[in-house]
Design a protein around this nucleic acid. Structure first.
Lengths: 337, 337
DNA sequence: CTGAAAGCGCTAACAG
DNA sequence: CTGTTAGCGCTTTCAG
């Protein structure tokens, strides 16, 4: 491995001089600078970031931890985060926890041991508390994405889940639906809870009866097995005329299941969902959704993170951004008469 | 920051002993081991990976560089890569070059400076040569994904692009299409070239005339501007009855454009594409495609990489895996009579 | 079974 | 403008 000492020797200067030309610090004569640069190129020198981090105690690397890399919502978030990181002169590394606490724990370890400068993350859920406390304890600045965790005070970028859900259900009711069911993510995830609250409120607002039997708690991540969801549908009586999906993955899963049961959408049943399907949503514009500003989640998240890093006070006051969702009407909902 | 010296002091042992219990090396009495472990927990010790890498000259971290994080093909690849990395005991970090040589160069720098143990990457194209040579020069083991680069000898996982494309066009011809056009990625990308070859071969095989005016070279990444593609369509005479898209992004773009021009698919024109749309493809099953085994690309890629890393001989013989594509017929193609 | 010394590659602080 | 010294946190080597 080529080190600054190799460069120094060949250029007849000290290692310190080499370090100075690399970092553009201090005053160096044009002549020595040129000589050192030439030798660096000849020897294909690459600085060792590990050594540098060791002494500088910082890396200029940010970490983005998402919970589902195959979910268009999060990949669009990533785009925003990338652009913002570039804009502020940081490198961005990605991790995917797959909605799993174990994988999240692994990434937290990576984050802690590699000493990245900050983290933008969507926590797997409320049980992520120890992970976040770990970041807090080790003074790693972080910003939460899309999900809040009770008991953790920090910067955060959220979507207006309750309002989005309220509008979604309101739309169904406007279209004449009364028997509305919901498949939701784990209740240990704040956005799932807020979406359920929005559902309840919309029902109440329209003097409709709320029956918890019509709510099925599943997972925001891809399902291996639809049998639980299927059993739930089996015992629903009367069968719902419309189903609200707590996120895009669940919308996909429930549609798959309904079709498996031989039902057509929207002829036999209407489906509506939270989160859009990214750029491919309108390939064959199909499902009506409350679309979130995914790109902004990522961009503003990194922005807040960088601000926090550069701020002296790492302990509040905390900032909170709430982004609204937009109702996009397509053709998965049928009007009842 | 808590270091092994802090632990050592509090546990009344030497730093070396602490290091030994952390790494489970050497022989340590159960008593001291327990004591050290207890102190580590009390002090919330986290090893500094940078210091460790510096002396060990390895990180147990692999890097996956993809060219489009919003493309379901690559996110599915990522899933496979993650699972394989976990299986072999490596951590995986992600990067997204966005089909851009500049961003790719940035990531190569990150890879080089952070001294990861190996890289699985989809190169932006043939101009990626200097980047790959850089990895070669610095002895960073790498495996190429989806695209080969002329002049670079290395391990690689490819799709059978030519055959896939041949079958796609064959299907169009079977359905009675004769005027077939193609929107393709940059010709500096091997898979784009192979898909064009497959197109030509299928035409020739069926005694159809190949006219290069019916081929439009665009980009595999998301387009900001459809006007070039629109102009190309304008001067096509006769207008094609079917269009082959070189990948899923282009399929999306061309469909968007055709609709903008007021055409219905498949009533007015048929569209067929390479690469599927991930789990969401069959939300409203629409476009007929040659689907690639994305997950396998990632899984086998990491497998090859790990083999290469653990092998003494880092310089060949090189392995090459070619994965077949599967024709999935949906409803974006109309049979002509 | 445990420890002391040296060094991985780099830069901050000080000296000249 | 340039160099010397020391040390970031860890592990290897050798000694006990």
């Amino acid at each position: 491995m080529v080190t600054i000492y190799d460069i120094a020797a060949k250029a007849n200067v000290s290692a310190m001089t080499v370090s100075r030309v690399i970092n553009n610090t201090g005053k160096i004569s044009e002549k020595t600078r040129a000589k050192v640069k030439k030798v660096m190129e000849e020897l294909h020198y690459v600085p060792n970031q590990n050594a540098r981090s060791l002494v500088l105690q910082q890396t200029r690397i940010l970490f983005l931890l998402i919970t589902d890399i195959t979910n268009p919502f999060y990949t669009t978030v990533s785009r925003g985060a990338e652009d913002a990181a570039k804009r502020y002169g940081y490198r961005l590394l990605f991790g995917n926890s797959d909605e799993s606490l174990e994988k999240e724990a692994d990434y937290i370890t990576t984050i802690l041991t590699t000493r990245v400068d900050g983290v933008l993350m969507a926590p797997a859920g409320d049980p992520s508390i120890p992970h976040l406390e770990s970041l807090l304890k080790h003074q790693v600045p972080f910003v939460l994405l899309d999900r809040e965790v009770p008991g953790i005070e920090c910067d955060i970028v959220l979507g207006d889940s309750k309002e989005g859900s309220r509008r979604l259900v309101g739309h169904l009711i406007d279209q004449g639906h009364r028997q509305i069911a919901m498949v939701n993510g784990s209740s240990s995830i704040s956005s799932a809870r807020h979406r359920l609250e929005g559902f309840k409120e919309a029902m109440k607002l329209n003097d409709l009866n709320y029956d918890s039997a019509y709510i099925h708690e599943s997972s925001f991540g891809p399902l291996k097995d639809l049998s639980k969801m299927n059993n739930w549908l089996d015992q629903l009586n009367p069968f719902p005329t419309a189903i609200l999906a707590g996120n895009n993955v669940l919308a996909y899963e429930i549609i798959r299941l309904l079709r498996y049961r031989g039902m057509r959408i929207p002829e036999d049943i209407s489906v509506i969902g939270f989160d859009d399907f990214g750029p491919y949503a309108d390939l064959d514009p199909f499902i009506t959704v409350a679309a979130q500003q995914a790109y902004q989640f990522g961009y503003m998240g990194i922005q807040m993170l960088v601000e926090r890093i550069q701020q002296e006070d790492k302990s509040g006051p905390w900032k909170k951004i709430v982004l609204p969702a937009e109702l996009i009407i397509r053709r998965s909902v049928r009007a009842l008469d």
